[in-house]
Structure formats: C-alpha cells, structure tokens
C-alpha cells in the first residue's frame, strides 16, 4: 500500500449528479440479463420480465440497479456484442421509465461500459478488478462512477483454484486502493468511486469470511464500500445450504457489513435486504424508527 493516499474523509456518494449522504445504506438490486446466472437462472432473461422486476425492486426500496449480461461463472462465451445486445437496450428502457434511478452496468469490458453509459448508466461495476483498464477511462469520460474490486488477479469468469494470501485483507486493500488511485488520476470523479472486496471472487470461503469480519479495515479508508455477497457460495458453504436457502445467511452478512460501515449492498432479495438495512440504520441511530409505543403508553 506504500505510495497510496491515506484515508479520505467519508463524503456523499455522487453518481452522475445523484447524491447519497454517508449515513444512508443503499440497496443495489441485481437484474441479470442472462439465461444462466447462478441464482434463479433466466429469471429476467425476458425483457418484459426484467422490466417487471425493475418495477418490483423500485417498489421494494432499491436505490439502484445493477444490470449484468454475463454470468460470473465459467460457461459459454458471451461476446462483447452479445453482452451489449443483452444490456444496452434494456438500460435505455429503464432510463426512459425511471429518469432518476441510478443504473449500474455490471461489466468488465470498456466497449460495453461505453455503450451502457451512452444508454444512461451512471455507474460501472467492474467486478473483475480492473481486467480491462480502459473501463476506467470510460467512467472518466462519461462522469460515471466506478466500482474498484478485488478479484485476486483472476481473469473474468474464472474460479479460484487453490488461492492463498499471506493476508487477504491487505491484498484487497492494496488492489482496490490502487484501482481507486488510478481512477482518480484518470479523471473519474472521486465522489463516484466505490470499493468492493468482492466476496468469492478469487477467494475461498475462508477468505470471504475474513473480509467480512475485517470489513472495518476497508471502510476505514473512507471510500464507500460495496458488499456483494448475496446468496454467494461462501454463505452456502458456511451454512451448508443450497443457493435457494441462503437468504438468512446473506442478511447476516449484510447486517455485519452495514454495522462495519459498508454503504451499498448488492442484493437479489431487495425487500428483505431493505428491512435488514433499515434495522441496522435504526440501531446505529441513522434512521428514525417507524412507530415506537412499547413501554411509552
């Protein structure tokens, strides 16, 4: 980490003009334009179903969407052209329907990022940790935000194989702060830069538990932290549950992350995540509870 800037003062997250203060916990709803993602594959493959999900997650309290066209797991090749075909018209349709909703494009490719920003995306979620450096330049060019992630140096769509780290949190910090620093130098608005330890990406489940337990070391940097843990394998391996039975574990990770200062939560289960985050926010004293009467009558 030598040579990297010290902690910054936490400030509002600003995504193409939309501002979110530090105390506010944000839900990023997953909308996959894929036929083969790991949880409920094909759920929103159909564009009508995808738009329907957008209406639903907005009603459930989502603050932003994360639209992806390529599953993280290995599988049949999805070309940049095909990825654009899946996500770009959809982003344009969502932008038309929801002028003020923050839209994130989940992509590692700069060509896709560019088309997504032209269609109205506000944030580029570079889950594969800066694999394509030109994506940063696209974010700078469009004034979009950028998620700086740690994927352990793995190429996109590959699984970790016998990965080890002397100190996984140090490795995460080194990578995400390096990416954030590079983004700032490239001209990305610092107020739109987010860091993400990227649970499961380039990590075994012990590593993902460790980055969760020590998330405070990431939030202490002052950069907004994104938690992307929803129904992931580390939850399933920890609890011995299949993908359909990982909500409780996900919400526990969510609550711990929020308590330790993470600000954005990428989620399949928006309503439940919103409730868990509201509960944490109330415990922290950042949210006024709904209705308090017990013992006060």
């Amino acid at each position: 980490m030598s040579g990297l800037p010290g902690p910054r003062e936490p400030g509002p997250l600003v995504l193409r003009g939309r501002s979110f203060p530090p105390g506010r916990l944000l839900v990023m709803a997953i909308v996959n334009r894929t036929p083969d993602s790991f949880y409920r594959p094909g759920l929103t493959w159909d564009e009508g179903a995808a738009l329907e999900r957008v209406h639903q997650v907005v009603a459930e309290g989502a603050d932003m969407l994360d639209v992806g066209g390529v599953p993280a797991k290995p599988g049949a090749e999805v070309t940049a052209l095909e990825e654009m075909r899946r996500v770009v018209p959809f982003i344009a349709a969502v932008r038309a329907a929801y002028p003020d909703l923050v839209i994130s494009a989940d992509t590692w490719r700069h060509e896709v990022g560019r088309a997504a920003c032209e269609a109205g995306a506000d944030l580029l979620n570079d889950t594969w940790g800066g694999w394509d450096p030109e994506l940063t330049e696209v974010a700078a060019e469009f004034g979009a935000g950028l998620v700086c992630s740690h994927a352990g140096g793995l190429p996109p769509r590959t699984r970790p194989f016998r990965v080890s780290y002397p100190d996984v949190v140090a490795d995460v910090l080194d990578r995400v702060l390096g990416l954030a620093d590079r983004a700032v130098r490239t001209g990305v608005d610092p107020a739109g830069i987010i860091i993400d330890p990227a649970h499961d990406f380039g990590k075994n489940s012990w590593h993902s538990l460790e980055i969760t337990r020590r998330l405070g070391e990431l939030t202490a940097t002052g950069w907004p932290v994104l938690m992307s843990a929803s129904r992931k394998d580390f939850v399933g391996e920890t609890l011995g549950t299949g993908v359909d039975d990982r909500l409780s574990g996900t919400l526990a990770v969510t609550a711990v992350g929020a308590w330790l200062g993470a600000r954005i939560f990428r989620a399949h289960d928006v309503a439940q995540t919103r409730q868990a985050l509201d509960m944490v926010a109330a415990i922290r004293g950042d949210l006024v509870p709904a209705r308090m009467v017990r013992g006060l009558a």
Partner: peptide, 8 residues
C-alpha cells in the same frame, strides 16, 4: 420525539 416517524 419518542414515537419515531409515526405520529401516535
């Protein structure tokens, strides 16, 4: 102040 958002 004690009843939260709701006006009880």
């Amino acid at each position: 102040e004690l009843t939260g958002s709701a006006d009880v």
